[in-house]
């Protein structure tokens, strides 16, 4: 049976992630309610507005179920606002502190090619939209890539978080990475 990847769909760029997930032969499931987190092989927390997502996670009682999903060892990919959701100040599962809108307003959004350590096949085409960066990271956190000296891609166990949007460039290797960690099902 093909694996099922949940995509948090409270708000933001969840559809582009669904396309990538399906292109890898996995099932994509939009997650808006706690029960939709059950039986997932991996989870993607997409980009969007982190304030909206924070309110939605609170309103819909998703914080605790999301933390439990991480504790059970389900691999998670967070992109942009998704990275912020995982950090110390939000879900508190990824030992980093992030800086929101760190590169500035939309006029300073950009795309670039980025080498990520441990990811074969050449640089990732990375789209940064009003993106955050990692300000501080804990010792268990591995920095995979940086821009202007600021970490923008990190990994801690089965959590992978990037400040950019691989899904907007049709980049599927990060999704493959979390799917390959396969420790999801209870």
């Amino acid at each position: 049976m093909s694996p099922t990847v949940g995509i948090l769909a409270l708000q933001g760029g969840f559809e582009a992630h669904e396309k990538i997930v399906r292109s890898l032969g996995a099932q994509a499931r939009e997650v808006r309610l706690p029960r939709e987190l059950e039986g997932l092989d991996a989870l993607v927390i997409p980009g969007g507005e982190s304030t909206v997502m924070t309110l939605g996670i609170e309103r819909d009682g998703l914080a605790q179920p999301l933390r439990e999903l991480v504790r059970r060892g389900t691999p998670v990919l967070g992109t942009c606002a998704g990275m912020i959701m995982l950090d110390r100040d939000h879900l508190g599962v990824l030992d980093v502190a992030t800086e929101r809108n760190a590169f500035g307003r939309q006029l300073h959004s950009f795309e670039t090619d980025l080498e990520l350590s441990g990811l074969g096949g050449g640089p990732v085409h990375a789209v940064f939209i009003r993106a955050p960066w990692v300000r501080v990271c804990g010792a268990r956190v591995e920095v995979l890539g940086s821009v202007d000296g600021h970490p923008v891609a990190v990994r801690q166990g089965k959590l992978v978080a990037v400040a950019f949007h691989p899904e907007l460039a049709g980049e599927s290797r990060l999704h493959e990475l979390v799917l390959g960690m396969n420790g999801g099902r209870d």
């Binding site: 933001g12 760029g13 980009g47 969007g48 507005e49 959004s109 789209v127 939209i129 460039a169």
Partner: peptide, 15 residues
């Protein structure tokens, strides 16, 4: 770039 311009709209979806 157009990707960056249209990309912000992608992030506003569902909002």
């Amino acid at each position: 770039t157009f990707t960056v311009k249209a990309g912000l709209a992608e992030m506003l979806k569902g909002g």
